[in-house]
Each structure stands twice: as structure tokens, then as C-alpha cells.
Design a protein around this nucleic acid. Sequence first.
RNA 1: GUGGGCGUAGCUCAGGUGGUUAGAGCGCCAGGUUGUGGUCCUGGAGGUCGCGGGUUCGAAUCCCGUCGCUCACCCCA
Length: 434
Amino acid sequence: MSNKFKRLPGFRDFPPEDLTVRAHVFEAWRRVSRRYGFMEYDGPPLEPLELYVEKSGEEIVAQLYNFQDKGDREVALRPEMTPSLARMLAERSRSLPKPIRWFSVPQLFRYERHQRGRLREHFQWNVDVVGEKGVSADAEVLAIGIDGLRELGLTDQDVRARVSDRRLLSALLGAVGVEEERRPAAFSVIDKMEREGPHKSRQRLSAETGVSSAMAGDVLELLGADLDTVAAHFPERDEVGQEVARLSEYMDILDAMGVGSFVELDLRIVRGLAYYTGIVFELFDRKGELRAICGGGRYDRLLELVGGEAQPAVGFGMGDVVLTDLLGERGLLPNTARSLDFYVVAVGEELRPRALSLAQALRERGRSVSYSLKRQAVGKQFKSAVTEGAREVIVLGPDEVARGVAVVRDMVSGKEREVSLEDLGDDGWRMRES
RNA sequence: GUGGGCGUAGCUCAGGUGGUUAGAGCGCCAGGUUGUGGUCCUGGAGGUCGCGGGUUCGAAUCCCGUCGCUCACCCCA
């Protein structure tokens, strides 16, 4: 490429075909959000660096797209939306009716080497319920995420949700003797288990927590089991039992909502962000070829951390990159071809004014209309009509106009008929025909 | 940040072992003499062969560097 003005690495242009796809996804997200009664919000793309330090977890902070502005402020392009949301709510959650149901479609940024499904910039559908600590809120949030995918044509054959609960994980670790302070380290081991494999994970868990290697192995094995099996292992522990009961209720609600076939328990899901406190989940393509499409969970402490009123909260983020890749693989991308209702052809220069006013009249009625911007032979104008995707061409010729009519050609069937110029302006001819 | 692969027109790619004005298809523009498209025919625009340096009489072709793309690792929205 000889263009010296290149895109920054990891950033995308959106020419019309790509923007059509993006808009298709955004529209589905927004439709589903509104269907569940959520209100859209937004915030600044540039935030004080400190908003993310310590609240988001090392993973995000290490990859912040940050710099110093001209006022010597340390700033960062937002890597996630939740802290901004938390700040907004810290200022006003007291005065809002609960539960608060808000969503957003922000563009987020991270500074890291890009690869498939992971760029330096992406758009992310954020959905949050604030002010409700019961599992029905957790369930509703996951259901919206799943519905967002269904809205785009994906089914339970294409995607699945893997859900876990940090409270249950914590209770399990406690049950085998892992101290409270050691549990975050244990979470980290569990989070990496799928990549590192059972042997290494067992060694690391044992080393990080002090429990025996055998015990560590037992715990890790249990993470892949179902709820009943987990419960059966700790009949005497109230804490584990309560957590199991809660997750069980959560699953029942999802079943009742009709999305149960998408959901599986998987205690190996932890999520990297530091602020999650309860149920966490991730959505994946069934084939497991792509990265997570979506991730979220409960974060009951975050509002306090940014100086607001303590409020329970649960939400998720769904990025557009992996999702669009998946839609592409499943042939679910929208048609990006151009289309027009009408193309007006003027036969002879004298009729151009007439063509323009007809086009305007149709546009005022909400029709999409185009015509040649320069003097052109009729054949040329027809070619343009095809290029622009016109469904019908209206031909204004001297003979017909003299008789008060125009020829309307259906570009699919090739059939032509005469319509009076009077009727063309108000669609009366269309009504009579159909 | 680490490693592998790749980098020729807008797109997909040709260009044996280095040799004169770098090619094709598609797309784009213009024509095929101002009343009808999706086929066809003709012509045209468009490339400092990613960039820089080196080897050579001579490099798209070999060597080094660099940038970019891509895959994997790290990590994960």
C-alpha cells in the first residue's frame, strides 16, 4: 500500500459494507435492550487513569491505552464501561428507582498487540442491573445476552453460556482449608486451568494455597462436575449448600425464561476482573473456535469503591469483533447491497427539472430515490439504476409526459406500465395495483 | 513483549535458477452516435513491486534492517 496515512494498528475503518454489518449488530442489541426495559446511556471515551487502577484488575491496567494530556493529567481511553457506569451511578443512584436497568454500546480501547478477535478498539454492548441482589437479576442479565445473540440468528446449537459463582468457588476452597486471603490466588489458578492443564494447575494450586496436592486435585476435578455432585461432596457444610441452592435457583429461572438450553454450569469460569463478587459467566461459540463472545457477572462492591452508595449490581459486556466473526462463519451477516425504491430516468435534458421535482416528491413521501447527476444517455441511466439497486425505474419521456404519464419499469420482472404523473406523487397507482 | 508465515494495481493473484517500457481476471471510468439495464465488444485510468540500505553492470526476484498484515505465545474486553 502506497498510502502514507495508514490506520493505527488494531483500529478499523468502517466503509459502508462494514458499517452496515456493525449497524445490524447494534440495532439487534438496542432492540433487545429496550425489549427488556433498559435505558441507554453513554460516557466519555477518555477518562482519568485512576478510574481503572486498582478497580479493574491488573490484566486491564497493564494494557491500558493511556498517556498524559496537555494539562499534565494522566488519562486513559476507556478499556471497559463499568467504572464509568459506577461513577455515574455513584452520583445519582440514590435518587433513581431500583432496579436500575441501563445499557450502552461504547467503543473501548486497549493497548496490546492485536490478533484474531482482539483489536485495540472494539464496541461492546454493556447491560447492567443495579440495585437488586437476588439471582433473578443475574438470570435476567444473562437472558438478555443470550437473546441478543438469538436476535442475530444464533441458536443454542451455535453458542453456549458457561456459568459459575465466585461465592461457591470460595466456599469450596474454604471447605478444603484455603484461607480467605489465599483465595484470589486460587481463583487465578482456576482461571488459567484450561490453558495450563490439570497437572500444572494442581501443582500451582497446592503451592499457592498450602493445601495438599491430592486435595488440590480433588477440588479441581470437582469444578467440572454438576451441581448435585458438588453438593454431595460437602453435605455437612452449610456454606457450600447455600451457594449450591442459589445457583440451582438461578438455573431454574433461566429454564423458566426459555434459555436453559444455552446454559451450563462450569466452575472453571472465574473471569479476570477483580471486582466480580458472585455469579460470573461467559458466552462461547459451541465449536470453541473463537474467543469468548461475552463475559459478565455480579459486582456488588464496585459502586462503593468509586465513592458511591453501596449497591448490588450485575452486568455483562459483549464485544462486536468475535461476534461478527461468528456471524460471518454462520452466514448470518446482513445483505450489504445498495438499494433504492426508484431511479428516475429523464429522456432528454429538457425533462431533467421535471425528474428532479418528481424525485423530491417521492422523497417527501419517504421513498429512496436517485437519478443521474449529469446529462447521460438513457442506457447509461439504466445502468446506474442497476448499480444503485433500484427496484423500479420511472422513465420520463417527452411523448408520455405530454400525455401526463410516465413509464414505470419493474427492474426484476422487466415489466413496464404507464402511470399518470399525478398518481406517481401520492402512490395511488401502487395502491390500485396491489 | 516473544516467535513463525506473508507484503506485486481498489480486490484475487501471475511474474522457473536476478536481465530491457511489470502482467491477467474482477472492479472502476469512457465509448459502442442522446427512449431502456443486468450479456457482449473497444478503449482508458490505476503500481517508486510495503519502506530503507546492501550485493551486482543490472533486483519485484538475493542479503540485512524496518514498518505493516497474519497466526501462535503471554493475556484477555
